[in-house]
Amino acid sequence: MSLEPVPDVGTLVRDWRRRRRLSQQALSDRCGVSTRHLSTLETGKARPSAGMVARLCEALAVPLRERRRFFTAAGFVPDASELPLGTPGLAQVNTALELILAGHEPYPALVIDGGWDLVAANDAAYALLDGVPADLLEPPVNLVRLSLDPRGLAPRITNLGAWRDAILARIRHEHDVSADPRLAALLADLDRAPAAATLPPDAPEIVLTLRLRVGPDELAFVTTTTVFGTPGDVTVAELAIEALYPADDATRAALTSRAR
Rank of each mutant, 00 (worst) to 15 (best):
T158H: 03
L190T: 06
H104I: 14
D202W: 10
D130K: 13
A120N: 12
P140T: 10
P155K: 10
A154S: 15
A185Y: 01
P133F: 08
V111L: 11
A195P: 00
D135I: 03
N159E: 10
A169D: 11
D117E: 14
L208T: 05
P150A: 10
A91T: 14
L101E: 14
T158Q: 06
A203W: 01
L97M: 15
D113E: 13
D165Q: 12
V119H: 15
V119D: 15
L146N: 13
I112R: 09
N94S: 14
V141Y: 05
G161R: 15
L137E: 01
G161I: 14
V214M: 00
H104E: 13
T87E: 09
E205T: 14
D117H: 14
A188C: 00
D123P: 09
N94Y: 11
A120R: 14
A166G: 12
T209D: 12
D130L: 06
A162S: 13
D191Q: 07
G89E: 09
L183S: 04
A109Q: 13
R145Q: 10
D113A: 11
N142M: 05
T209Q: 14
Q92H: 11
A109L: 10
V141H: 08
D117T: 10
A169R: 15
D123W: 02
L187D: 04
R192D: 02
V144Y: 08
A195W: 07
R172E: 08
A121N: 09
P106N: 04
A162G: 06
I171W: 06
G114N: 08
L183R: 07
P200S: 07
L110V: 15
A169S: 13
L186R: 03
I112P: 00
P140K: 08
A193V: 03
A193T: 05
R213I: 01
A102L: 07
A120D: 15
R182L: 05
L160D: 01
L208P: 03
R211M: 06
L146G: 11
G131V: 08
L99Y: 11
D180F: 04
H173S: 07
A91Q: 13
L128W: 05
A91L: 09
L186K: 03
A162V: 06
G152H: 11
G131A: 09
W163K: 06
R145I: 08
P194D: 07
R211K: 12
H175A: 02
D135K: 13
D165H: 09
T87P: 00
P204D: 10
G131D: 11
D189F: 05
A203Q: 08
S147A: 15
D135V: 05
H104C: 11
P133M: 07
P139Y: 12
L110P: 00
D202M: 06
E205D: 08
A91V: 13
V207I: 10
I157Y: 04
G86K: 05
P108Q: 09
R156V: 08
R156Q: 12
E205W: 01
D202G: 14
R192V: 01
